[in-house]
Deep mutational scan, measured.
Amino acid sequence: DIIVVALYDYEAIHHEDLSFQKGDQMVVLEESGEWWKARSLATRKEGYIPSNYVARVDS
Results as ranks from 00 to 15, higher is better:
residue 1 D to S: 12
residue 1 D to M: 14
residue 2 I to V: 13
residue 2 I to Y: 15
residue 2 I to K: 12
residue 3 I to K: 05
residue 3 I to L: 12
residue 4 V to G: 00
residue 5 V to Y: 10
residue 5 V to P: 00
residue 5 V to Q: 07
residue 6 A to Q: 00
residue 6 A to R: 00
residue 7 L to G: 01
residue 8 Y to I: 07
residue 8 Y to V: 08
residue 9 D to A: 08
residue 10 Y to R: 06
residue 11 E to H: 12
residue 12 A to H: 02
residue 13 I to V: 13
residue 14 H to D: 09
residue 14 H to T: 10
residue 14 H to Q: 08
residue 14 H to E: 07
residue 14 H to V: 05
residue 15 H to M: 13
residue 15 H to C: 13
residue 15 H to R: 12
residue 16 E to M: 11
residue 17 D to S: 10
residue 18 L to F: 05
residue 18 L to I: 08
residue 18 L to T: 04
residue 18 L to H: 02
residue 19 S to T: 08
residue 19 S to I: 02
residue 19 S to F: 04
residue 20 F to Q: 00
residue 20 F to S: 00
residue 20 F to E: 00
residue 20 F to M: 04
residue 21 Q to S: 13
residue 21 Q to Y: 10
residue 21 Q to M: 11
residue 21 Q to I: 10
residue 24 D to L: 02
residue 24 D to P: 01
residue 24 D to F: 02
residue 25 Q to T: 12
residue 25 Q to K: 15
residue 26 M to N: 00
residue 26 M to D: 00
residue 27 V to K: 08
residue 27 V to H: 07
residue 28 V to S: 01
residue 28 V to H: 00
residue 28 V to I: 14
residue 29 L to C: 06
residue 29 L to G: 02
residue 30 E to L: 10
residue 31 E to Y: 14
residue 31 E to P: 09
residue 32 S to C: 15
residue 32 S to V: 12
residue 32 S to R: 14
residue 33 G to V: 04
residue 33 G to F: 05
residue 33 G to R: 05
residue 33 G to K: 05
residue 34 E to W: 15
residue 35 W to S: 06
residue 36 W to L: 13
residue 36 W to P: 03
residue 36 W to N: 03
residue 36 W to Y: 14
residue 37 K to D: 01
residue 37 K to P: 05
residue 37 K to W: 15
residue 37 K to L: 15
residue 38 A to S: 03
residue 38 A to T: 04
residue 38 A to K: 01
residue 38 A to V: 14
residue 39 R to V: 09
residue 39 R to H: 07
residue 40 S to L: 15
residue 42 A to N: 11
residue 42 A to R: 15
residue 43 T to A: 04
residue 44 R to E: 12
residue 44 R to A: 13
residue 44 R to K: 14
residue 46 E to P: 02
residue 47 G to N: 00
residue 47 G to V: 03
residue 47 G to S: 01
residue 48 Y to K: 09
residue 49 I to S: 00
residue 49 I to Q: 00
residue 50 P to A: 03
residue 50 P to V: 02
residue 51 S to M: 11
residue 51 S to R: 12
residue 51 S to K: 15
residue 52 N to H: 13
residue 52 N to S: 15
residue 53 Y to C: 09
residue 53 Y to W: 07
residue 53 Y to I: 06
residue 54 V to M: 05
residue 56 R to K: 13
residue 56 R to Y: 14
residue 57 V to G: 05
residue 57 V to E: 07
residue 57 V to D: 07
residue 57 V to T: 09
residue 57 V to N: 06
residue 58 D to A: 11
residue 59 S to D: 11
residue 59 S to K: 11
residue 59 S to W: 12
residue 59 S to L: 12
residue 59 S to I: 13
